[in-house]
Design a protein around this nucleic acid. Structure first.
Lengths: 193, 193
DNA sequence: GTCTATATCCAGATAGAC
DNA sequence: GTCTATCTGGATATAGAC
């Protein structure tokens, strides 16, 4: 296995270009020819690596869910109270939005059901369930008021998610990091005991 | 003008069917033939009433924005404090989700830029701006803590919007009306002085 | 205003050489 | 594994009778 090989493998280049294109123009407005041009990988090679156009989106989706899963693992290991864990989740989502807006855009906006009929909607995937579990832990602890778990998660994370949408739509200009303190303060005041 | 005419005009039937189809399968997965079949209006007539497929979506978008505009007018007339107005906005959005889920789905999910490149994203349209203005009014009044206006609006409405997403995705079962009290309590506690 | 039949185009996918 | 050339289906949109 070569270390420092300069050129990335073809399938990675395809996935990278596809992410940019899907996020800018949308899945259906992006042709496989576009991906070929953008990535420098020929049509034939693309279809050698991926079953079809959906297969490209599918691979992106799976890798994204695994990525999130790993991040939640880290948060679980580093923080222990519901307060700290939920705050860390929001911080992580904000950082991801700043560093990889296309990825966040794919996650939030892409109507996965439209082109991935077999996948569950993103918000019922395992990582999102684990985020909601943090809030349930808080209710058991006595950190958070008792209420419907889904309502609680929506209240706690909803403000942050909304702000991410506004940022991706270009309505919010300033870095999300600058908003973290206020967003978190509001969210926590809302649900804390 | 006939009162009680039994059959709706063709263009209304087209818009109605298109809304259902766009919301269930997505804009790009819906062909004009699908709309023709579903509405009982022939292809030729559809193209007589609308410039093209985008024109159908455009008409839907415009009518939706006007509809929202009218609802905000009513809220503004009936309520006067920021507290009451913002609560009424959430109540209105919840009711709309229950009664016309397809319309709400079109509003929240449809990435309008993908097929309506000339329209602004929904959340920067006038009705959404007016919703945000309610929160600014609250800051001037002293009802709401001073903070960045966009952050404030995100915190106040974010939980409710998140819950609507979860409802439309089938993750939340119970009627949103049952959640209104808790969602609003959390949201208001978060931002109130 | 409404309809059927049809033209046109282009994207997804494949074949097969290298 | 990578490439070019090609096939094919289906979608948008139009023509023109009624």
């Amino acid at each position: 296995m070569k270390i420092n090989s300069v050129k990335k493998p073809a399938d990675e280049r395809v996935l990278h270009s596809a992410l940019i294109l899907f996020s800018n123009k949308g899945f259906f407005n992006t042709s496989v020819h576009d991906i070929s041009r953008e990535s420098g990988v020929s049509i034939g090679s693309i279809y050698h690596h991926f079953k079809d156009k959906q297969g490209i989106a599918q691979a992106m989706y799976v890798s994204l869910v695994e990525n999130l899963h790993g991040q939640i693992d880290q948060i679980e290991a580093r923080h222990h109270s519901a307060h700290d864990r939920c705050r860390a989740v929001i911080e992580m989502l904000f950082e991801m939005t700043e560093r990889q807006p296309e990825l966040m855009s794919f996650m939030l906006y892409a109507k996965h059901r439209e082109f991935l009929p077999d996948e569950k909607p993103m918000c019922s995937s395992l990582p999102f369930e684990r985020m909601r579990n943090f809030t349930m832990q808080g209710m058991k602890n006595g950190e958070i008021r008792i209420m419907d778990p889904l309502v609680c998660a929506a209240c706690l994370y909803g403000g942050a998610v909304r702000l991410i949408h506004l940022k991706l739509d270009g309505i919010v200009d300033k870095p999300l990091g600058k908003c973290l303190h206020d967003v978190w303060a509001c969210a926590w005041r809302g649900v804390a005991t």
